[in-house]
Design a binder for these strands. Structure first.
Lengths: 207, 207
DNA sequence: ACGTAACTGTAGCCTATTTAACGTTTTTTA
DNA sequence: TAAAAAACGTTAAATAGGCTACAGTTACGT
C-alpha cells in the first residue's frame, strides 16, 4: 500500500551543501541491490519507491513528495534495499555520508531533522505492514483516501494496475472492488478515470 | 513475521551516559500510543516488538536481541507506534533525546552508530513487508530458517501459537503446514518441540 | 497438588482472491 | 502514424487460507 505522506521537513537552508541532480520521468534514481553512498532529498517532482521481494514480486512502498528524504538506507555504503523511480521529472539533492557527517558537526540541529525524517520513514513502513491485516476493500479505501488527501481533490490519477501494485492485490481484485463501488455510487468511472463521490464511505470502511 | 537479526552495534562505551532500567519477563517497556522521549538500548535479555493495527489485530514485528536499539520512533516526543514487551528479564539503557543530542555534539561518531541502528530497523520492517508477498508455507519457512540461524541449532523454541502470531497466519494454518512438513520428513515433532531435519528444503522454498 | 488457562490435533465448511484466458481499448514509441 | 506495448473489462474455475468447533494435553499459579 502506498501512502503519500506530507509532513514537511525544512531542509531548505542546507540544500547548498548537497549536489543537485535531475531525473526525467521514469528514470531510476537508485536500484535495489546497488551500492549507495549517502542519501537524497527530493526538491521537486515525485518519486515512487518500490521493493522487490525474494519471490520476485514487486511492491510499491510509498510515494515520496518534495521535502522528503529518500535512499537513507545506504547512508553507510550499504546496498539499497529499495528502488526509486521518478514519477515526474524531479530535482533531488544528494548528500554523501561524509559530507553530511561533517555538516552535522557544524550544524548539530541537523540531527533532529535527519532523525525526524527517518522516523517518518519508519512510520510509513509500519503503516504498510498494518495494512496487511485489512481486507482488500479496506486496503483500497485507505489508499484512495490517502491519495485524495494528497492531491487535494477527488480524482484519482492512478491506473488500476498501479492500484493493484500499491496494495499488493491482483488487478482483478482491484477491478472487482472498483466495479462494486461504482454500482453502489461511491465512485464514478469515466474514460478510465475514477472520481470519488462519497469519500465518507471510504473513511468509514477503515476507522 | 518475526525475524531475529543479529548485526552487532558497539554502544558499550556510551552506556554510562544512559539510564539503566530493569524489566521483568512479560513486562511492558513501552506501549503503542504512549508518549516517549528518547530511545532504549537493550543490554541484556530479549524483547518482543508488536504492533496493533487499526483493525485491532496484533502482529509481532521482530525480536530485539542485546546490542540493539528499541523505541527510536519516539525520539522526538512522538508517540510510540509499536509496543515492546520483555520476553526474558531484560536490562535496557534509556537515552533521552536531549541527553543524546548533547552527547552527539561531544561524540560525533555516535551519529554513525545511530544511523546504522535505525537503518537496520528499517531493513527489518522492509523484510516484514516483503514477506506478505509469500505463501504461508514460505512465510513459515523463512521464519523457521531465521530462528535456526539465530539460535544456532535446529530445535525451534517457539510455540505453534507464536509462530502463528509472528507470521500473521492462523494457528490452524501453521499446524497444517507443520504437519505436512512432518509427513514429508522435513521436520520432526516430539513432545511439542520441533526439529528441523532438512534445512535446505526450507531454504529452497524461498530463494 | 489441583484447577484453570493456554496450547495442540483434527475435521469440515466457506469465501475471498488468485489464476487463466481473451478480446478490446488506450497509450507509447519508433 | 502505424505497430507494439500496456492497460482494461469480464467471466469462469481452482484454491488457499480463514473461521468454527471441540476434545485432549501441557504448563502454571497459588
Amino acid at each position: 500500500m502506498v501512502t503519500v505522506y506530507e509532513e514537511v521537513f525544512h531542509w531548505e537552508n542546507y540544500l547548498k551543501y548537497g549536489t543537485r541532480q535531475f531525473f526525467r520521468k521514469k528514470e531510476c534514481i537508485y536500484k535495489q541491490g546497488e551500492y549507495g553512498e549517502g542519501f537524497y532529498y527530493l526538491h521537486k517532482g515525485l518519486v515512487r519507491i518500490v521493493t522487490e521481494s525474494a519471490a520476485g514480486k514487486e511492491n510499491m512502498l510509498n510515494i515520496v513528495i518534495p521535502n522528503q528524504l529518500l535512499g537513507v538506507q545506504s547512508l553507510d555504503q550499504k546496498t539499497h534495499f529499495t528502488t526509486a523511480i521518478a514519477v515526474k521529472d524531479s530535482v533531488v539533492y544528494h548528500f554523501s555520508a561524509d559530507e553530511f557527517r561533517q555538516l552535522m558537526i557544524t550544524h548539530p540541529e541537523l540531527f533532529k531533522l535527519f532523525s525526524k525524517s527517518v522516523i517518518h520513514k519508519m512510520k510509513i513502513l509500519l503503516d504498510r505492514i498494518n495494512l496487511n491485516a485489512l481486507t482488500s476493500e479496506q486496503k483500497l479505501a485507505v489508499l484512495l483516501h490517502n491519495i485524495c488527501d494528497e492531491f487535494k481533490n477527488y480524482e484519482i490519477p492512478i491506473s488500476q494496475q498501479d492500484l493493484a501494485c500499491c496494495t499488493g492485490l491482483t488487478r482483478i481484485t482491484v477491478y472487482k472492488v472498483l466495479k462494486q463501488w461504482q454500482e453502489a455510487g461511491i465512485i464514478e468511472i469515466d474514460k478510465r478515470k475514477y472520481f470519488i463521490k462519497k469519500p465518507d464511505f471510504l473513511r468509514n470502511l477503515v476507522s
